[in-house]
Write a protein that binds this DNA or RNA. Structure first.
Lengths: 203, 203
DNA sequence: CGTACTTTTGAATCGCATCAAATCTGGTGG
DNA sequence: CCACCAGATTTGATGCGATTCAAAAGTACG
């Protein structure tokens, strides 16, 4: 796959230095694949391009504890600093995957100041986004979560969804039925303006 | 306040180089204080030592959107890379605050490789923790959240709470009543062993 | 000893998840 | 072009579980 194509889905990749690109593998993954298991030596830093990967830990009673679900972006960034993984990585949906050799990645961070700054910026923005999402998920009402989403992630009190509403519902921690119903109710009340994929707060 | 004391509450601070320490101010804050407002020029990178600070955005109808609640640790790390703040910071509970000059902080990251690596590790671990918390908050049942917490944050399927259960309830996105009741139920069912502040999964 | 806070238990209410089913949509191949 | 299919979207009915309000008992601390 061409880097130009990759960059479109993950703008961060534009800043990966040439030397590191050459050491990076791009490979397909199939649903059910296991990228790594807990305790495995860290051989790659993964970046999901398409498809879905889950980081999980298997609990005492066969329970499955999901630590991260990724449909794009880096997986387990903290593994850059450790020798072994602390969870399993399972592929939920077939797709494409970038595999960075951790040593080369660390070298690039060490030697290439602009790349390093972009990386730190990426991490800091991810932290910001996740903190806002945690606060949002702590809210009780469906309407409150929707409004919180628009006010924290939107631009000028409006968002343009780049995913089906069903997926948005999951991001909001709601059933899709509740999301549809609440959107309609807020629209009827005149609190929200809904134009296809564009949703904006009124006044 | 002595650095030695600060380090006990925030181990990361042990790695702050001397030059940066000298440029850092430690000051008291009172409930109601405003650390910065949206649009303000970034003058400090804040680290909460004690007390509580909230990052908020004020919505269109006087609604208050909480982006982060911090009772220890850095505030708005992403502000390191931007000129102005994108939210307000309000003090909820009086306490102590470290104020790093952003330029000196960036210089330290640039020049001091070990410090920089500790910082990147801190960000990566924060990302990991927050992603797990988001997955946890997406779970419906109180019991599921409690078990997820122990399996993801605990050591050997056990956690030792360093905060009152009421605060734990808030972190789990539950009312404290529900947390108490569910803990008792899980204990009665033999799924959980509860010894004061130590809570462990059975089997 | 008193005050503030946490922990605990009870009862009533409400909102969301769930199950079910119909409609709509975009994309595929005949 | 139409038939068809897999998803997404929409609406309805039901039950459960969490929130909420209330109040009592326990605990830490000055």
């Amino acid at each position: 796959m061409e880097w130009q194509t990759l960059i479109e889905s993950q703008p961060f990749l534009a800043h990966v230095p040439l030397r590191l690109r050459k050491a990076t593998e791009c490979r397909k993954m199939l649903a059910g694949d296991v990228l790594f298991r807990i305790g495995d030596h860290v051989r790659s830093l993964f970046c999901v391009v398409t498809g879905e990967v889950q980081l999980v830990r298997h609990g005492v009673r066969g329970t499955k504890i999901v630590l991260q679900r990724s449909r794009g972006g880096f997986l387990a960034e903290a593994s850059l600093g450790s020798k072994a993984y602390h969870c399993d990585a399972e592929v939920n949906e077939a797709g494409m995957l970038l595999c960075f050799p951790p040593a080369a990645f660390r070298t690039a961070l060490e030697d290439d100041a602009p790349f390093r700054n972009v990386w730190m910026g990426l991490l800091a923005r991810e932290v910001r986004k996740l903190r806002a999402q945690c606060e949002r998920l702590s809210l009780n009402g469906a309407a409150e979560r929707i409004i919180h989403y628009i006010e924290s992630e939107g631009i000028n009190n409006a968002v343009t969804l780049n995913q089906p509403r069903k997926a948005w519902a999951s991001e909001l921690g709601l059933s899709h039925e509740t999301l549809y119903r609440t959107l309609k109710r807020l629209g009827d009340q005149g609190l929200l303006r809904i134009n296809g994929k564009r949703i904006s707060l009124v006044r």
